[in-house]
Design a protein around this nucleic acid. Structure first.
Length: 376
DNA sequence: GATCCGTGGTT
DNA sequence: TAACCAAGGAT
């Protein structure tokens, strides 16, 4: 029997609101795909070659991260870890190293864990069932859908930030974005407008439209393929959708790092706990926000001579920075190197074994600089 | 349901 | 320029 839809195959709903909704959904997808064929983004590295592994890695990196930011990280990552097996067998330290600077490091830890699970439970092949994919760490409903749609061309509605914005505007979904009612409504709409075929193309089309035309600010409505049916545009209220999330201003957090250097040009580095900010990365030891160098040395039972201290920006093994944190690291030159320190390593950038050379060299150089010395 | 997790782009 | 936002998920 033919699966081709005909007017006679749906006599019960012809002309009803249900059939009208279906027709509207088909037009939505058709216009979007037609637009995408000439205006969609091209040349993103995970699109060529578009293998399941590359799609997976890219989707994790793209969580809460713009495509342009991801590109160089993605290329380095897949050049070093070219397939699931290689990633699964890699040291987490090396995986985090290539993730450094990208942020949200739990993504890298989860990706590494998930690779091992895929090797163990799925014969090294990424599952094609979204429900199975969702059981892997780091993969939620939206990411699972995006992966199967793009990697396997399986129909699966997505609801990333782009799709949310497009749907909320087009269908006038006004509720607070965090509420479960709004989420449910958006998922239902996402499902309704996702066509039966061309899953990969359609998924890419929604995201491209949201990123380049239906932008958060200054949307290009005159260029939108959906402008004739967009509810928000008709109401002259595109800027009101989706509703703004109320974000309480985050309090400034103070942090203090103690950069210990010895007379041989080595510095002391610790692997940070898995939980919390910069989890699993290497950094100078962190003390209490208001701790003085003397208190720090005493708390660690370090019988060392403090030469001097100065304020400086944080530098970690895997990248560095922070701007919304009031970070106040302190440099400590040690005349005698404590040997009983546990949990970290004394690292000499001239004898690199851990890939710490770049950061350690910066720390040592900064510590050696006589400027900005502030004794406390 | 609220909070945490990063960094960079944009206006 | 301070505020907003980004191809979200885990706890």
């Amino acid at each position: 029997m033919s699966t081709k839809p005909t007017a006679k195959s749906v006599p019960d709903t012809a002309g009803t609101s249900q059939s009208r909704s279906r027709d509207a959904a088909r037009r939505f997808a058709r216009r979007l795909l037609a637009w995408w064929e000439t205006h969609g983004r091209e040349g993103l590295p995970w699109q060529n070659p578009r293998t399941p592994y590359r799609v997976w890695v890219s989707e994790i990196m793209l969580q809460q991260t713009q495509a342009g930011t991801v590109v160089p990280y993605f290329e380095r990552f897949v050049a070093r870890f070219g397939n699931v097996r290689t990633l699964a067998q890699a040291d987490l330290d090396d995986v985090l190293h290539l993730w450094s600077g990208l942020g949200y490091y739990a993504r890298a830890r989860n990706l590494h864990r998930a690779a091992a699970i895929v090797m163990r439970d799925h014969d090294g092949t990424l599952p094609q069932d979204p429900a199975v994919l969702e059981t892997l760490p780091g993969i939620g409903r939206s990411t699972a859908a995006a992966i199967v749609a793009q990697a396997h061309n399986v129909r699966a509605p997505i609801l990333d930030a782009n799709a949310k914005r497009v749907l909320a505007r087009h269908f006038l979904v006004a509720g607070p974005p965090s509420s479960s009612a709004t989420q449910t409504a958006l998922w239902a709409l996402a499902d309704a407008v996702t066509p039966a075929g061309r899953a990969a193309d359609y998924t890419q089309a929604v995201m491209d439209l949201g990123a380049t035309v239906c932008r958060p600010r200054q949307p290009l409505c005159s260029q939108c393929p959906l402008r004739r049916t967009c509810g928000a545009l008709a109401a002259n209220a595109v800027g009101e959708y989706p509703a703004r999330a109320k974000r309480p201003a985050r309090p400034l957090k103070r942090r203090r790092f103690f950069v210990l250097t010895d007379g041989e040009g080595a510095c002391y580095m610790e692997k940070r706990p898995t939980s919390g900010v910069w989890g699993g990365l290497w950094s100078p030891p962190e003390g209490d926000a208001e701790e003085t160098p003397a208190e720090f040395l005493a708390a660690r039972r370090m019988d060392a001579k403090l030469v001097g201290a100065m304020s400086f920006g944080p530098v970690f093994r895997h990248g560095f920075s922070h701007f919304d944190l009031d970070v106040a690291p302190v440099f400590i030159h040690l005349l005698s190197r404590p040997s009983s320190v546990s949990g970290g390593v004394w690292f000499n950038p001239r004898r690199d074994r851990l890939g710490l050379s770049a950061v350690a060299a910066k720390l040592v150089a900064a510590a050696a600089a006589p400027a900005v010395l502030e004794r406390k």
